[in-house]
Structure formats: structure tokens, C-alpha cells
Amino acid sequence: MKVHHPTTLDEALAAVEAGAVPLAGGTDLMVEVNFGHIRPDHVVGLRRIGELSSWEDRRIGAMVTWRTVETKGPKAYAEAARTVGSPQIRNAGTIGGNLGTASPAGDGHPFLAAVDAGVELVSRRGRRVLAWSDFFTGVKRTARQPEELITAVVLPERLPMRHAFGKVGVRNAMVIATVCAVVTRDEDGATTAAFGSVAPTPIRAPRAEEMISAEPKPTESALAEFQRLVSEEVQPITDHRSTEAYRRHAAGVLARRLLERCLR
């Protein structure tokens, strides 16, 4: 068993290149270890690397915890952070770890999708920023290469004027989303709607977005059409947590309510 405790990104990258498993907050990795699914014997802990925990303007370091996002993040991102796990989980879990796990139900993903955020990846060969849509490639699969570390989330230069997050689940704390969503609305009416838990990766609802963006003051029937299009565009499955039909319904209702919140 070898665990590296680097204080610089360069040391961490060398360890990853040599095959060490990156460890962020541990809230996903250790569940796999405790349940006997994996047994990593070469690990690199990332929490001592100052650069990864820093938050400069629109570049949020990968080791920033949900607790920090909850207290200082943009509104909808903070709202999403507030629903991650429990206080204990938010104190440990990080935005980079959340991206690395890439669960379809990750509460942080819809915000990144709704505002078109990027994911910064670094290896010893260089640095690249992928659009969120190129980063997520499937259920718990991403475009991160084995020798790369997720180093930051990069927000766009300007965020839409209004944005809101919502989540449907069976209780407030410690719940994995049945559906979660972020809707944004800008001054000119441009609207985005992004969803978690309704497809293998986070997804947007482009037809619903296009339709409602053309409505400067959405009427009752426009809102109903927006809801209908969202229900049609999401791609949920039936599993132990919910059914496809319920998820379609809930995604539509949730998106409409979040839009109404943005319009208020």
C-alpha cells in the first residue's frame, strides 16, 4: 500500500502517470473500497494541493468541497450543493470528485450543463478544457485519460441573469435524485434547461429551450408546452429508484416550476 501526499500538482501528476488512483474527498471511492469492489494499493491524495482548492473568479478548483459551493457558489450551484448528501458528505466531497465519478445522478452536473461550463484536465503533457458535453461520455464514464487529473471547473465569462436548481427525491438529506434540474433565463429571454438522473449523462432539452426562448413573456400555454417538450426530450429509464414515466413527468413539472421561479 502506497499513498502519496503531494503538495504540488506536478508531484500529483507524476504519481497518476505512474498508476496511482486519484483520491479527492473519498465519499465515492471509499464506498467502493468498503464494499470490496475495488482495492487500490497505489493512491494519490489530492487534498494538500493548494492550487486545486483555490477558487478564482470563474475558475473553481477541483478540490473545492460542496460545503464551500453551498456557502459561496452562484445561486443555482449553491442550491445544488445544499442537496448533496449530508453535512458530513459536503464537508468531504468535492466538485472534482463528483465529475470523476460522473454518476448520471450527480447533483452538480445540471448547473454545469445549463451554463455551458468547461472541465479542466491536466496531465504532464499539457492542459485542456473540455466542454461539459464532451467530458461526460456515459454512465460513470468520462473523457479523462488515465494520466490526467481533473483540476477545475471553468464557468462562462458571464452567467445568465436568473438560474434555479431543483431536485425530486424521497427525503431532504442523503438522497440520490430521482430527477434534478437547473433552468436559466437571461435578460433577452434566452433559456436553458439541464437535467440529471434522466439519461446516461447530464442532458439539455434543446427543443424546449428554443421554444421558450422565443417567448418574451411566456403565457400559460407556452409554459405548458415547455413542460411537455421537456417530458418528451429527457431519456430516463425505469430502475429501483423510479419509473421512466414518473421521471418524464417529474422532469417536465420541475423544469416548468424552475422557469416560473426565474420569471418572478
Partner: peptide
């Protein structure tokens, strides 16, 4: 949660 902290870290 100490069950989710890797001792080596």
C-alpha cells in the same frame, strides 16, 4: 464520516 476517509491519506 470516518468510514469514508482513507486512513493512508
Amino acid at each position: 464520516c470516518s468510514c469514508l476517509v482513507m486512513a493512508g491519506d
